[in-house]
Design a protein around this nucleic acid. Structure first.
Lengths: 344, 344
DNA sequence: ACGAGTTAGTAACACGTGTTAGCCAAGGAT
DNA sequence: ATCCTTGGCTAACACGTGTTACTAACTCGT
């Protein structure tokens, strides 16, 4: 099996035709005349030799690598504890596979942001990229907008004209808060999913505020806290809420992953869910339904988001879409489980 | 910014030298004489134009793509709910970045196994691959062993001579079971992490049996159940254990992810952890410590495994290692939390 | 018989890089 | 004066493919 590379030249030689013919036959080029017998000979020879075209050579000449990049922008630790990444990857993989495209994962350390984004595409390693949970400063946004690199954001960025795929975070958070309000809660705390630089975070908090205002409930500023993606930050936020001395009967946590930590803090404080405190999450990660009690949450269609992002990017790459006008918003859904209780 | 590609030819022209010189200077080729002034001119020109070498062209001529593949072999659903994937990816990313290597994720549907494994490497998309949680039939193993594709397994496969990175599953499971036995438990159930085709599953069960035998405790066959990676399967397994009518005071679950589901089933049955049943997991996923109660478990060094796998693969690719003799075993660690209680 | 059109296929270039063999001038040794 | 070395650089090939322009043979209508 230490066989040397099989090239199209070998196939041509075995089939007794030219390399051009091999290429025309195997790529099934339309509008060209090759006799059925020759076709057969070529296909036969290719199978016999186990010919697989060299992807790099194809990429060089066609100027398409048939690969897209998934660019992660967060810290090492946040990637390792991201409960959402598997769904995103699995969504990406299914759509990519349908189009015979590969996925390159890359990681841009925040330090060298602006330049690093381009290197992959400039080096022609990928045909386009998906930026996950972007947090961009203005110069980086502008650079990406004017650059000639098909880019799709997963999650939107304020003030950017880049195509993106996202949910309506404001509306989704309103749903969550309204649910708590409908259950009679008025003193509600809010823990964000991430620091305010990540657009989704202030949006979700805003949704919370909107619902509260509409119901005539006042928001205690000391009961609004910004977490940082992981359970640990949720734990810390909840601790600080409990220590604030403000009373609250329910908490909206804008991320299930953060809620896991928040829940642990409540437990440590001897508080029972939903008996003492109602808790609603956001995302519906796979573990939410197995939580104790099963976590009521807002379902984010993670795989669908990834799939849409992938299709959108492919359309962009193939020039089938106008890059200025592509913003896809998917629906969220309130999943009622058992972590919230009505106020008597 | 719609600037055309900048090639080494453009750099050469601007610097007033030949393309060869550009290549020699920028790649810092040793043992060749270029005057310092010329060097400076070339570097200056390259910076000015923002030259980035075309990766595909480099790959074509150097026969190195500078990319490795992470090949996932499980179902769509299992990938989406894999609590370990983020750590593996983050581990891979850090090591890969150090060596300026990219990571391509691919997914081999089980149907077309044997052939699909090779396509990536045969197409020269990657220089080598890491197979995660492999489950290979004999022909696939043989094919991989004799093929000329650097391959590293994450998790071992019985009867294979391929290089791998793994933990000592038997010993680790013994640790877990011994811990329960030391607490005085004798009637212990066992839920595997996966179906028996995945080598780690029978190994962990074997470790459980070893510890039981050594302690003179008998294993009730109806208390051994094989789960299937996700919480749902853990839920089902625990249900069937409870319905078996066999008495047990503790359960060893060979995967935290599975344990999440098992725990939910116990809760539904009105059983309390650790009051009624002691539960020990395996893996130490990020959510284990925030579980209620915090889950006692065996820590698997996921990121370290990924990093070792990556380094090993790179050594293999660069011919610095003998592919026949490379098996790396990392240590596991018992993490005592609060899900197990001594029998009175 | 002869030009026009079709059929079946090929030679040759392009993609952008790494690398080998070699060229030329200047200087030193014989 | 001739030969050899050495520093500094370049022409030319190779990597494996897609594609365009072109040719040679063959058919066909008049």
């Amino acid at each position: 099996m230490y066989r040397n590379r099989v090239t199209s030249r070998d196939v041509a030689k075995l089939a007794g035709v030219s390399r051009t013919t091999v290429s025309l036959v195997l790529n099934n080029v339309q509008g060209i005349q090759i006799s059925p017998e020759t076709r057969q000979k070529v296909i036969q020879a290719a199978n016999e030799l186990g010919y697989v075209p060299d992807a790099t050579a194809q990429a060089l000449v066609s100027r398409r690598t048939k690969a897209i990049g998934l660019v992660l922008t967060r810290t090492h630790h946040h990637i390792a504890t991201d409960a959402f990444l598997p769904k995103i990857i699995s969504g990406l993989l299914t759509t990519a596979k349908q189009h015979n495209i590969r996925i390159l994962i890359d990681w841009v350390e925040t330090e060298h942001q602006e330049s690093a984004y381009f290197e992959l595409a400039r080096a022609k390693r990928i045909d386009g990229m998906i930026l996950s949970t972007p947090r961009l400063n203005d110069s980086a946004i502008k650079a990406l907008e004017t650059a000639d690199i098909p880019t799709v954001l997963m999650g939107s960025v304020a003030g950017s004209t880049l195509p993106f795929v996202d949910v309506d975070n404001v509306q989704a958070a309103e749903k969550a808060a309204s649910y708590l309000l409908d259950l009679g809660h008025r003193e509600i705390a809010c823990i964000s999913n991430a620091p305010p630089e990540y657009t989704a975070a202030p949006e979700r908090v805003q949704g919370f505020r909107n619902a509260m205002a509409r119901a005539g409930a006042s928001v205690k500023e000391r009961l609004v806290c910004f977490a940082d993606f992981d359970p640990e930050s949720g734990y810390r936020c909840m601790k600080s809420l409990l220590e604030s001395g403000e009373r609250f009967t329910a908490v909206f946590v804008a991320s299930d992953n953060v809620a896991i930590g928040a829940k642990a803090a409540l437990r440590e404080a001897g508080l029972h869910i939903p008996g003492d405190i109602s808790l609603i999450g956001f995302d519906d990660i796979p573990w939410a339904m197995y939580s104790d009690p099963p976590l009521t949450t807002i379902r984010l269609p993670a795989e669908a988001l990834a799939q849409k992002a992938c299709t959108l990017l492919l359309n962009l790459i193939n020039g089938r879409e106008n890059r200025q006008t592509n913003r896809i918003i998917l629906e969220t859904e309130l999943i009622v489980r058992k972590s919230c209780k009505a106020i008597q």
